[in-house]
């Protein structure tokens, strides 16, 4: 009798464990999965350190709208003031193109040659990278008919032994073309003997320009003019 009662209890309640477990599964999913939670969940930790003045839900919205409009206007005018007043040049190293601009218009665009992204390994194991640096530079010196003082790598690249620092072999009057604009750290915007390679990444870090473009750039950019390389 007792055994039958026990079996009856088992048959009555145990099968309900399955739907009960499914219920628990559904509830846990509802509670813990992100889909049912606020989109801002776990956002608080990202934004707690940043403060924004005022509250968007506050009642004086007309005043806030005006304040926001004034702030936007002020920020826009401050941002506009950031544009250089004097002409400047943008150099795109991926496309090997330049854009000469002033604060309002584009003065000239054209092709140039930038760094060949090569590492020359010297016989002693020294590694010399040839790449055009990116960032903002300024014209530090303008030279007409520049003479290039060849560095060591210019000889090593040709399989020659570098001469002494003051050797006449170091001075080259033709390679840099008619003009050169120094932008610091030994980098220049200059002309080239190899006009056919313009538009290709072939230089050792300097920016090579065609004769006509170089003349316009030389005459447009003053000392201190900004050079943006990206």
């Amino acid at each position: 009798m007792m055994e039958t009662e026990e079996k009856g209890w088992f048959r009555k309640y145990v099968p309900w464990i399955i739907p009960f477990m499914i219920c628990i599964f559904i509830v846990s999913m509802i509670i813990y999965t992100p889909a049912f939670q606020n989109g801002a969940y776990k956002m608080k930790s990202w934004v707690s350190s940043y403060s924004v003045n005022g509250d968007i839900n506050s009642q004086n919205s007309a005043r806030q709208i005006q304040l926001s409009k004034n702030n936007i206007q002020a920020l826009k005018s401050k941002s506009a003031d950031l544009l250089p007043l004097k002409p400047y040049i943008l150099i795109n190293t991926t496309e090997n193109r330049f854009v000469l601009r002033n604060s309002k218009d584009t003065i000239r665009t054209g092709v140039c040659s930038t760094g060949k992204d090569e590492i020359l390994i010297y016989p002693d194991g020294t590694r010399k990278p040839f790449k055009t640096p990116k960032g903002m530079f300024s014209v530090q010196l303008k030279r007409k008919d520049p003479v290039w003082t060849k560095p060591d790598w210019a000889f090593i690249e040709e399989g020659l032994k570098p001469p002494s620092a003051r050797s006449a072999e170091r001075y080259d009057e033709a390679t840099l073309g008619s003009y050169a604009l120094n932008i610091g750290d030994g980098y220049m915007l200059h002309g080239t003997l190899y006009q056919r390679f313009l538009g290709l990444p072939v230089t050792h870090g300097c920016v090579r320009l065609g004769d006509a473009d170089l003349e316009v750039i030389f005459n447009t950019l003053d000392k201190g003019a900004k050079v943006f390389i990206y």
Binding site: D117, I119, L120, I121, Y122, P123, K131, I156, G159
Partner: peptide, 11 residues
């Protein structure tokens, strides 16, 4: 995209 080049021994 750097490419490595070993310096030539002579001309």
């Amino acid at each position: 995209p750097f490419v490595e080049k070993i310096a030539p021994k002579d001309t």
